[in-house]
């Protein structure tokens, strides 16, 4: 650690002073290979720039050499760590804007935005898909109730994300990617964990659909599942399963197999797998609260990415799973 940070400091020292926008100092000759009598001085210089000392960390320079009074140049003040926004920051912003303007121009010159036939409410395309950034929700829709997938899950997730800073109050620094080496390990672990479970669950629901399984659980003589026989009125539920009785507002008489496959199983899976992730990162990495938040947030990001890709590329006619759907290149 100390070595790499010192190397970085050394690299920053090599940037010509002019580029740093400071008065040009005369070049300080790099120290010659240490003769015996200067060893102490070099050790002294190293001591004075201690990478583990936070005060020294904030200074992007270190003592390279001690020069005699007769030398051509004697530094009178320390190089500043503060620079002017003009031109240093503005130059970066300007370059970034130029690069992305050119990229957008080139993209727009060569790739045309899609335009299909005039809208026709009579002609439903198969499959009908939302814009790509909502296909994650449309993918969830296949595995649970519409209200759960389309409204409750995203709302809860966004609320939890918004509230993170009010609960992440533990010690530790800000301004470092993944906070610590342990944090990085937790993020990598969570990505692998989430990808594994997500692909497993999607595959499971493709080859052994939970909805069908629940319907045929404990069949009677006619082959009708036990759960389909029991019905529970749910206020605010989806009334499409059976018409709402007269006089009742938006109450759905829902068979238990649908309650199981659309509500109870998906919610349990989400809670159990998130809880297991928290337990695992605590046990395996000794994660603190920040790491737990990182694990869960990574779970969200990876789920968002995977469900978006699966919903966009691997769902074909009738939202059936289709390995080759991507080849048809649905327009964005």
């Amino acid at each position: 650690m100390a070595d790499t940070s010192q190397e970085r400091q050394a690299k920053q020292d090599q940037i010509p002073a002019q580029a740093q926008g400071q008065p040009t100092p005369a070049p300080i000759p790099a120290p010659a290979p240490a003769p015996a009598d200067t060893t102490n001085r070099r050790a002294e210089a190293r001591r004075r720039h201690d990478a583990s000392n936070p005060l020294d960390k904030a200074r992007p320079h270190r003592l390279l050499a001690v020069v005699k009074k007769e030398a051509s140049f004697i530094p009178t003040k320390e190089p500043s760590t503060i620079v002017h926004v003009w031109p240093h920051l503005l130059m970066i912003e300007f370059l970034c804007a130029i690069v992305f303007t050119v990229t957008l121009f080139i993209t727009s010159a060569f790739i045309n935005a899609p335009l299909e036939d005039l809208a026709n409410p009579e002609k439903t395309p198969n499959p009908s898909k939302a814009p790509w950034y909502f296909l994650n929700l449309q993918e969830l829709l296949l595995h649970m109730d519409g209200g759960l997938a389309g409204v409750i899950v995203p709302t809860v997730v966004l609320l939890m994300i918004a509230l993170v800073p009010y609960f992440d109050l533990g010690p530790g620094q800000m301004g470092r990617w993944f906070t610590s080496e342990r944090g990085k390990a937790v993020v990598i672990f969570s990505s692998i964990y989430t990808s594994f479970w997500l692909f497993f669950l999607i595959a499971l629901d493709v080859f052994f659909p939970v909805k069908t399984m629940m319907k045929s659980l404990f069949p009677d003589e006619q082959g009708r599942g036990l759960l389909t026989q029991i019905k529970i009125p749910i206020p605010g539920g989806d009334p499409t399963y059976e018409p709402t009785p007269a006089g009742m507002l938006n109450v759905s008489i829902t068979p238990v197999d649908i309650i199981m496959s659309n509500w109870i199983i998906p919610i349990s899976v989400i809670i159990v797998l998130s809880g297991l992730l928290v337990v695992l990162v605590k046990k395996r990495f000794g994660a603190d609260r920040r790491d737990i938040f990182q694990a869960l947030f990574t779970g969200f990001v990876v789920s968002f990415a995977i469900t978006t890709v699966v919903g966009t590329a691997l769902r074909g006619y009738g939202q059936e799973f289709d390995w080759l759907w991507w080849a048809f290149k649905r327009p964005l």
Binding site: S128, K129, G237
Partner: peptide, 22 residues
């Protein structure tokens, strides 16, 4: 743009809103 793509994408999207409980 009012083409098939936009019409049905928004139909699907707003059907999600329809699934809001209550």
């Amino acid at each position: 743009p009012w083409d098939q793509l936009s019409f049905w994408a928004v139909t699907v999207g707003t059907n999600i809103a329809k699934a809001t409980p209550f």
